[in-house]
Design a protein around this nucleic acid. Structure first.
Lengths: 164, 164
DNA sequence: TATTGTTATACTCTATAACTATA
DNA sequence: TATAGTTATAGAGTATAACAATA
């Protein structure tokens, strides 16, 4: 899990949604707003993801740990629904987390078709230790926002999600 | 390029940033705002991407076409910077677009180390035809927003990006 | 027969590092 | 030597479909 040094020059992240440079788009007033959404989210990921990867986790893996934290476990199908991946994909993610010793598949006696996925003690430790650290990391930036600004931004985003 | 029917039950998209279910997070006021950001962006992708894929393109491929449209071509390094991928990754993306006949590598005589990537006539056609179609598709949803709402949302996002 | 999850298959993207060709 | 881009390598995620085991 060597600390990767990216070759890219830009200060940026993973996925790019194609709203960046479509000039005709300017005719539509909503396009500049959507471009702003994409850029803002990408800027957030560019800040967020390297810290997650330093912890030796990928974003989907982190998501699974976060989802399992403070629960008594979840079944594959529940977990897939929560984390928005298909069951086949989740199998691979859980496999890798199991290899890392962070989760465990438990077969419940009452229904031996399914697995209850639970955090191992090591997984709990990650959830307890590493997550607060990540939040502190985020706080460095987002702590700057006033409560008023936060509410404001949040309600703008909610309005946007509403129509989707 | 068969029309894929996703197995997932949830109405959702690709990548999930791990901000969904981390309960301790609630202690920090900014966390709910960040969760809203992630959910809103994901909801957008869930709406946006299937339409792009119906056109036979992946999001990064669409991004390249969009970036090349209305230009006289760009070099690999410029294109990599614009689309925020590394040069090695871009090679593969351009390869696949070339296979599809949408872009072409032109060797400029004055510097034979580099390639000018240009849209083929077919690529132009995609840019001219398919993009407006995609915008109409987006308009179905975002056309609902008033100009006042748009400005409001956009400035909220800008404020957020400012601190990143 | 229906449900749960795995496996098989295939593809795209991601990144780094070593390499080739040109300058 | 420096630059532009490819190639090699490796790994993660994505999806679908076929399958096995259980119910």
């Amino acid at each position: 899990m060597a600390n990767p040094v990216k070759q890219r020059k830009a200060n940026q992240s993973q996925e790019t949604t194609p709203l960046m440079d479509f000039k005709r788009a300017e005719k539509e007033p909503f396009m500049s707003m959507l471009r702003e959404l994409a850029q803002t989210y990408q800027a957030f990921c560019a800040y967020d993801e390297p810290h997650i990867r330093e912890l030796g986790l990928t974003p989907p893996q982190f998501d699974v740990i976060a989802t399992l934290g403070n629960t008594s476990g979840m079944f594959m199908n529940q977990l897939a629904e929560k984390t928005l991946v298909t069951k086949g994909t989740l199998t691979g993610i859980i496999d890798r987390l199991e290899q890392k010793g962070l989760v465990r598949r438990k077969v419940p006696p009452e229904n031996r078709r399914c697995f209850l996925i639970v955090l191992t003690p090591e997984g709990e430790r990650v959830f307890e230790d590493v997550f607060p650290a990540h939040i502190s990391y985020l706080k460095k930036r987002f702590g700057q926002l006033t409560e008023y600004e936060l509410t404001h931004i949040k309600s703008a985003l909610q309005r946007l999600r509403e129509i989707l």
